[in-house]
Computed example of a mutant assay.
Amino acid sequence: MASLTNVYHLRRVADTSARPCLICYKPSTSVLITPDNKDFFYVCPKHLQDRHFCSPIIDAEREAARLKEQQMAEEIEKVKKEYEEKQKRKKEREKSKKDDKDDSKDKDAKDSKQSKESEANEEKERDEKIDAIKKGNAAKPDDSQRVFALHKTFYQMRIDRLKGIEMAKRNQERMKNPSLFPSVPSNDL
C-alpha cells in the first residue's frame, strides 16, 4: 500500500450531493480529500475549526499575496478619498466665484438648482460607492483555510480504514482463486 500523506484539501459539493459528516452524521457539503484522490470524507465546517480534529496548513505565498492585496485596496481607498476631497474643494471655489458675480435673486435660484444638482451628484456617488463595495465583497474569495492536516488519531483512523479496504479486496481475490481451497482426496480406500 502506498503511504497516505496527511494533507487534505477542502472542497465543496452541491447541496444535492450532501452526505453525512464523519463526526456528527449531519448532512454536509464540505469534503476533505487528499491531493492524489486516494482518500476523502465529508465533514462539517464547524469541525474544521476544532483544533483536536485538524489544523490548517498555512501557505506562505498565499498569505503574502492576500496581504499585498489588502495593502493595495487600502491605498486605492486613500487615493479615492483624496480625489473626492479635491473635487469638493474645487466645486466650492467655483460656487463661491459664481456667488460673488450673481445678484441676490439669481443667487437664490442658482442655490436651489445647485443644491438639487449637488444632492443628485452626492446620491449618485453614494450609489456608486455602494455598488463598488458590493462588487468588492462578492469578488472576495473565501478567506478560510483550504488545506488541512488531521490530528494523529484521526489520521491513523483513516490509514486503518484504507488498509482494511485493501485487505478485503485481497481476500475477495483469494476467494475467487480455486487453488486456495483444498482438493478432494483422490485415492480410493
Rank of each mutant, 00 (worst) to 15 (best):
K110Y: 06
I57D: 04
I159N: 01
K163E: 06
S179C: 09
E77W: 02
K105M: 07
K98I: 01
A139N: 07
E173G: 06
D108W: 03
D102G: 00
D143K: 11
M157C: 09
K129H: 12
A60Q: 14
Q71I: 15
D111W: 03
S183Q: 15
D142G: 03
A149I: 08
A139V: 02
E94Y: 12
A65G: 04
D160W: 12
Q114H: 09
P56T: 11
N137R: 13
E85V: 02
Q71C: 11
S183A: 13
K140Y: 00
D108Y: 03
S55Q: 14
S144N: 12
A64C: 02
R146E: 06
K90V: 01
Q71R: 03
M157I: 07
E77D: 09
Y83D: 01
R158Q: 14
S112F: 04
N177R: 08
D108N: 08
E63Q: 13
S179K: 15
K91P: 00
Y155W: 02
K140S: 12
D142I: 00
K110D: 07
K80W: 07
E82M: 07
E75P: 00
I133C: 09
D103F: 05
K86W: 12
K88T: 13
D142V: 00
I133R: 14
A138L: 06
K78W: 03
N121M: 10
K97A: 05
I159C: 10
S96V: 00
F148W: 03
F148T: 01
L150D: 06
R93S: 08
E173M: 12
A109E: 10
K78D: 05
